[in-house]
Every structure is written in C-alpha cells, then in structure tokens.
C-alpha cells in the first residue's frame, strides 16, 4: 500500500442516507485524482435499523475489500447510536480518531459519552440544518459538508460540483439547492472541541 489512505466509518440508521453518502464520497474524490471505495454493511433492511457504511479514500488504487476496523474518521448520523453498545461506534478507535457527530450537544458532552482518550470530537446539528434547508430530516449531505471542515480530501466547490452532477438527473432544482445550502451551512456550523 503506497500513499495515504483515509478510512471513514459511518454509523447511522436505515433511511438517513449513510449508504448514499458513503458511496457518493467514494465517487466524488475521483475528480480530485484520488481513488475511492464506498460500501455499506447490509443487514436487516429496515428503516431505523442501525447500520454502518464505509468509505476509503486513497492516492493509490484501493485493493483491500474488508470492513474498516480502525477508522481514522467516524461519522455518526444519529446520536442515539452513541448510547447503543451494539452499534459499536467506538470500536477500533484510538487517540487521534476523528469523530463527527450529528447532535445538538457540545463536543465536550459527546467526548465524555464516547470515552475515547485523545479522540478529536466535532459536532454539528445536521438534522436541524437538513430540516431547514432540505425540508426533511436526511442528515447525510450536511455531514459530508461538515467532514470537509476537518479533512481537505475535497474542496467544498468540488463536493458541490459532484453533488449537482449526481442529483441533477434524479431530483428537482429545489432539492439540489437545499442540499447545496445544507452542505455550506454544516461546513460553517461545525463545532470543534
């Protein structure tokens, strides 16, 4: 394995768009000359069921096809998962792991709940932003916007360009504009410890 590889693990509930975001990000980084790999873990396909998604981003082609055990970045789309040991939000994490949590709580409170020493915790009210911009509680795209505030894998403009390209064939301009606004707001409103 040559070059730098970022491994992201997504924790969400079915219906929050984590699968879409995990796979979309893998595609979006191609424009930057990077390689991406994105996949969800398929379990019970029920709305609200805890699920995990995975994204790898690398300068070199990605060869491994296993789940991510030691993520560099953990993105939590539903804060109730922090209270669920079965969800395994902190599994395989260590000092230096970046946590990005969709919550109205402050990073300090989330840090305490996570209990991972030396973890870098950031929070954003992605659900609130999604409700105000998109009109639905789908926090996936705002979380991607927030991610770019902590990692420079893509610029905000590159992300938005990729989003427009992907959504334009399926969604109305209103939905696209809502998502773009959500990305911008979450990127700015991210709170760091």
């Amino acid at each position: 394995m040559s070059g730098k590889m970022v491994e992201i693990r997504w924790h969400a509930r079915g219906g929050q768009g984590a699968k879409t975001a995990a796979m979309f990000l893998a595609e979006a980084v191609l424009t930057k000359g990077k390689y991406g790999q994105g996949f969800p873990e398929y379990g019970p396909e029920r709305r609200g069921a805890p699920m995990r998604g995975f994204t790898r981003i690398s300068d070199a082609p990605i060869r491994r096809h296993c789940m991510i055990e030691n993520p560099g970045i953990v993105i939590v789309l539903d804060s109730s998962l922090l209270d669920s040991p079965a969800a395994g939000v902190t599994a395989g994490t260590a000092a230096g792991t970046v946590f990005l949590v969709n919550t109205t709580d402050a990073p300090a409170a989330v840090s305490k709940k996570l209990g991972v020493k030396g973890a870098k915790v950031h929070t954003v009210d992605a659900t609130g932003i999604a409700l105000e911009t998109i009109g639905r509680p789908i926090p996936n795209m705002p979380m991607v916007g927030a991610l770019l505030a902590v990692d420079d894998m893509l610029s905000l403009d590159e992300l938005k360009g990729a989003l427009v390209e992907q959504l334009s064939s399926k969604f109305s301009q209103v939905v696209i504009d809502g998502n773009l606004a959500a990305i911008d707001r979450a990127n700015k409103e991210l709170v760091s410890a």
Partner: peptide
C-alpha cells in the same frame, strides 16, 4: 464476482 463485497461496493 463476490456478492456485496464487489457487487455493492462503489469502486474506481
């Protein structure tokens, strides 16, 4: 090709 591992993974 491997189900899910390849079939459902976005890969470059």
């Amino acid at each position: 090709y491997d189900g899910f591992i390849i079939s459902h993974t976005a890969d470059a």
